[in-house]
Design a protein around this nucleic acid. Structure first.
Length: 844
RNA sequence: GCCGGAGUGGCGGAACGGGGAGACGCGGGGGACUUAAAAUCCUCUGCCCUUCGGGGCGUCCGGGUUCGAGUCCCGGCUCCGGCACCA
């Protein structure tokens, strides 16, 4: 559809223009990543740098929302920009299509979740296309299709082989509303991340991925993530929760049994005056069996179990507990100290047992105070002594060990090392590292997910489904409602199989995988979405990976982003991918608020992207979501702000419509502009805009200032339209050139209008045209404005030749009347001249 | 409590390496065009004083460094996010 030298209509009407260009891009498959020639593989270097630009894939709920628009527009700008700067760009799209909302809809309506999901995907695809995103649609994937989850299952089997997937009984989080277990990451403040219901603890046999084996690697490799936002790294560090300390074993008095504890303060071991067990600790029953305290302890443990996670997690609860009547021996001094059960000790951190040092731990201090237990200072405060009383609270600061035998006099760090060595020598403990991170619980008792590909056989145990039998396709069922076990269990014909190992009657696993498993590797599959001999084609994969720029919401800081990092590390370790980290650079966008709250259907404050597109056009919306403010910040939506961007595009339209259609004008000669200051200023502004917009996109993720720079250039050019000084050959040439620069730079943000206007200015197919480069000759002016200060206070400005020396500049400054008045009767003790900027006269 | 981020006009924000505070947009005032309105264009818009020349103050608060601080340093306040009875 070449339409050169077309006269533009007077009014800008986006709808027909946008439809036309979208149809062209679609017909041409304009944004296919060029198939990776094997040149990079066969030794011949690829002719262009590769750039994998990726935004987090959408979950296909009904419609896209403004957050999606902003996310995909940012990626789109970047993809266009890099392509025009010569990179080979890969910009795919897909759908994170398994998950609860579709299943819950299926429960309500009785129609299979796949139907609703596929309808939603079709709808979202249309919405994305309406926004003109330059996506390689040929790579589109959907995680709920068997040709995708076949490989999710295949990868699960590799994890299983590597010992990184395992089935075990463990206390797990159960959401009674969604009737499924949840990963630790999906529990927020003791509640289900999805529905807000308070979770319960249950002891269940479940599938886990051993992400804890990678805790240290996930921390160490953060060094490779230099372009990740600090807050995301902080959140992951917090979540992994590394603490250094020691394991110390306490022997039960009168028994051989030793109970280990984890402590970050082994230096205070001599101050341990009692010992605590979590109510769920497996040794509690054995310790109290047949003793007079047994009833009290059991009652206490039952009460603790009945208290919800939310209640028990509250930090300011009184420290309750009950004495078991038993004692353990402190290994460093042989002292027998009482064993209590207390619910502030958590079974799922450390060992579920704690040595209590009330003098130097606030919780232990409170417990000792509440139950009349002794407190012994073992760290002296700087300039303090061993006998100083505590000031109503535990002392947790620095100091030297006291009352601690061979540790006395050592500083905290020195004492930690010494006591760890002492314990290690006697096999009573050792220095260790503990992590807060728990293994990733991946089984779900729900229907709409990838079936876990294993078979349970009475004689062979857990048997993996052979690779050649994949995919294990989701069976059809009549009822999707969760009943405490997976709805898949109802598909009895599907469940009953013969054991792949011994042939005996066996049963399929009926749990499905957490949908975060699907999204932990989709970016690998994009590189060869239809490949059928494996989850990805190694050569193509290693060409594109890692993702050069990943863009998405901050809400995935610990969930998706940590799981995906874990996945790529495992796949790297087992030799399936070359990359060590999935996402070289990460950008987390801010949320769009309205009326002070996140947009949501329940609050009724949603602005539907379609409505804005209908009213103002996709280009206006794209421009506005980026112009709102810094891309990383949370920003309030403004209907008026949208109108402002539409006005801007109207102005651009009028500017270009006023130009004669025709071939591109070359950048005007500097000489040709001599004598026409206005024309020179306009061309200079155009060059400055090229430099500024380029830098804003390339280095700063600062789209709002890039757009503001375009506003400035358009404002100046628009004024020029009615400026007599530009009504000559040089002036018209400058205006035409400025218009072309506007359109060319505008293209990544507003590709439809820019393509349309480009056609009338002789710039066809802007998506393939090289990005403009600023001409240095225009960036520097011969005459500059210099600010003149007296004692740092602004007094006046002056115009001076750019090449005037410092002394000359200062002399000019002194002659300005306002400056002369300000220094009158005083002596100038210093002249500070900042070349090209300012003169500051220091007077006394 | 620990870790991270941020405080600038009526509003969103700009100022990139210590050098003109408030670009750009929204909102508001005034004007032109119009029978009128919309649209468009021009113009003003941080606060205070002003004899209309200009002057003073101003980037959360208090100190400091510097010829010069929104920017750097010290102390504090407030807000946002993460972790948290984590031993």
């Amino acid at each position: 559809m070449p339409a050169p030298e077309r006269h533009l209509s007077e009014r800008y009407e986006p709808a027909p223009i946008e439809a036309r260009w979208q149809a062209l891009w679609e017909a041409e498959e304009a944004f296919r990543a060029e198939p990776v020639s094997r040149d990079g593989v066969d030794g011949e270097p690829p002719d262009a740098p590769k750039e994998y630009v990726l935004e987090m894939l959408p979950y296909p709920s009904g419609e896209i929302h403004m957050g999606h628009v902003k996310n995909y527009t940012m990626g789109d700008v970047l993809a266009h920009f890099r392509r025009r700067r010569g990179a080979r760009v890969f910009h795919p799209m897909g759908y994170d299509a398994f998950g609860l909302p579709a299943e819950n809809a299926a429960i309500r309506t009785g129609t299979p979740p796949g139907e609703g999901t596929r309808a939603n995907i079709a709808r979202i695809r249309e919405q994305l296309k309406r926004l003109g995103f330059a996506v390689d649609w040929a790579t589109e994937i959907s995680t709920c299709e068997p040709q995708y989850y076949r490989w999710t299952q295949w990868l699960f089997l590799r994890f299983l082989e590597a010992g990184l997937a395992e089935r075990r009984e463990a206390p797990v989080n159960w959401c009674p509303n969604d009737a499924t277990v949840l990963a630790n990451e999906q529990v927020v403040d003791g509640r289900c991340e999805r529905c807000g219901t308070e979770v319960e603890q249950r002891q269940l046999t479940q599938w886990f991925f051993r992400i804890t084996d990678y805790a240290q690697a996930l921390l160490d490799d953060m060094d490779l993530l230099v372009d990740w936002p600090e807050r995301v790294l902080t959140m992951q560090r917090n979540w992994i929760g590394r603490s250094e300390g020691a394991r110390v074993e306490f022997e039960v008095e009168g028994e051989g049994e030793r109970i280990p504890v984890f402590t970050t303060r082994p230096d205070t071991l001599f101050g341990a005056t009692f010992f605590l067990l979590a109510p769920e600790h497996p040794l509690v029953g054995w310790l109290i069996d047949g003793r007079p305290e047994a009833d009290d302890v059991r009652a206490y443990a039952r009460a603790a179990a009945a208290a919800g996670a939310v209640e028990r997690g509250a930090g300011d609860r009184p420290k309750t507990g009950v004495d078991t009547g038993r004692r353990v021996i402190n290994p460093v001094n042989g002292e027998a100290i009482p064993v209590w059960v207390a619910d502030y000790v958590l079974m799922d951190y450390g060992t579920g047992a704690v040595m209590a040092v009330p003098a130097h731990d606030q919780r232990d201090f409170e417990f000792a105070a509440a139950h009349g237990l002794p407190v012994r200072r073992v760290i002296a405060e700087p300039c303090g002594s061993a006998d100083d009383p505590l000031d109503g609270e535990a002392y947790t600061g620095p100091g030297a060990a006291v009352n601690s035998s061979f540790l006395d006099g050592m500083e905290v760090d020195e004492a930690k090392a010494a006591v760890s060595a002492w314990l290690e020598e006697r096999e009573l403990g050792e220095a260790t590292v503990d992590y807060r991170l728990r293994d990733w619980l991946i089984s779900r008792q729900r229907y709409w997910g990838a079936p876990i590909p294993v078979i349970h056989c009475e004689s062979c145990g857990t048997v993996p489904v052979p690779d050649e039998d994949l995919p294990v396709v989701l069976p059809e069922v009549d009822d999707y409602a969760p009943k405490g076990q997976s709805p898949l269990a109802a598909a009895t014909d599907w469940v009953r199989v013969s054991c792949p190992s011994c042939g005996a009657d066996a049963a399929r696993e009926t749990d499905t995988m957490d949908t975060f498993v699907d999204s932990s590797w989709y970016f690998l599959r994009y590189t060869a979405p239809n490949y059928s001999d494996g989850p990805f084609e190694r050569e193509v994969l290693d060409y594109w990976m890692p993702v050069d720029q990943y863009i998405g919401g901050i809400e995935h800081a610990v969930l998706h982003l940590m799981y995906a990092r874990f996945f790529v590390k495992v796949l790297n370790d087992i030799g399936l991918v070359g990359a060590r980290e999935p996402f070289a650079r990460l950008f987390t966008q801010g949320m769009i608020y309205r009326d002070g709250a996140k947009m949501s259907k329940s609050k009724g404050n949603v602005v539907a992207p379609d409505e804005i597109v209908d009213r103002y056009g996709a280009d206006t919306l794209r421009l506005y979501v980026l112009f709102m403010g810094p891309a990383a910040d949370d920003i309030e939506w403004s209907d008026r702000g949208v109108e402002g961007q539409r006005r801007f595009l109207d102005r651009v339209w009028r500017l270009v419509a006023s130009q004669e259609p025709g071939a591109p004008a070359a950048r005007p000669d500097r000489e040709a502009l001599e004598g026409n200051e206005a024309a020179l200023a306009l061309v200079r502004k155009a060059e400055q805009t090229v430099a500024g917009v380029t830098q804003d996109i390339d280095e700063r993720f600062s789209f709002h200032t890039a757009i503001a720079a375009l506003h400035e250039l358009v404002n100046l050019a628009t004024k020029g339209m009615s400026d007599e000084a530009l009504d000559d050959e040089a002036g018209r040439g400058a205006l035409r050139y400025a218009s072309q620069i506007v359109v060319s730079l505008l293209f990544p943000f507003a590709p439809h209008i820019a393509s349309e206007l480009g056609g009338s200015l002789g710039m066809e197919r802007l998506w393939e045209r090289p990005w403009p480069e600023a001409d240095e000759a225009f960036l520097t002016a011969e005459e500059i404005t210099v600010v003149v200060q007296v004692n740092g206070k602004l007094r006046d400005r002056l115009q001076a030749p750019a090449d005037l020396d410092d002394a000359g500049m200062a002399a000019m400054a002194r002659e300005l009347p306002k400056v002369a008045a300000a220094i009158e009767g005083k002596s100038v003790v210093r002249e500070v001249v900042v070349p090209g900027r300012l003169v500051n006269l220091v007077v006394k």
